[in-house]
Amino acid sequence: MRYLHKIFAVIAKDVVAELRTREMLSSMFVFSLLVILIFNFAFDLRAENQRTLAPGVLWVAIAFAGMLGLSRSFIMEKDRGSMEGLLLTPVDRSAIYLGKMLGNVLFITVVEIIILPIFVVLFNLSAADIPWLLGVMLLGTIGFAGVGTLFSAMAIHTRAREVLLPVLLFPVVIPVMLAAVKLTAAILDRLAFDEVQNWFSLLVAFDLIFMALAFILFDYVMEE
């Protein structure tokens, strides 16, 4: 129970810091909206291919917006000099990881909840799909943030800082993205669950593996 409190304290700290400025959430939201709009004229979306492109557009928007949030997550600590403070607190490093990761999942999910209705309207989709889409988005976001938080903590110590994060993260989270895109497409196409069950298993398996691995490896990244 104490451990949960510590995780919660890290999340609460990030949420309070974000609520004071709201700069990260707003820029993530505007950016993801921009990505969706840019895709619209980049692909010259026409009525017949809208549906086939929708899942890919949605996930690229989420991935790009998520990347913004992830790279801020530790740069914020470092620039304000609060990293040392965070590391000096008497909590296990894994609690810091889980707190940071869940905070990132929370921020990205908030952006997703705002962007999804707009997306449904822009792509002329059925509003009944929203709850299912949100479920898939949450699973995808957990995998994305699970390994993204670990890499974000590494990227701040490099010379290129946030520039390096996408280069490291995108290839590694490709399986999560793929499975999420497939499931999103299945929801939009009203496929039976049996047809995409292996993608669902892949997504859940990757979420668990990435989280477990990042949970173990975070200690080694934060060692100083």
Binding site: L168, I174, P175, Y220
Partner: peptide
């Protein structure tokens, strides 16, 4: 630090290789 981070990345990166090939 270079050695440490590289080791962490090599472990995470390798994990997605076999599953990529399964997919």
């Amino acid at each position: 630090r270079r050695a440490r981070f590289a080791a962490v990345f090599a472990i995470v990166a390798f994990l997605s290789v076999p599953i990529n090939f399964m997919a």
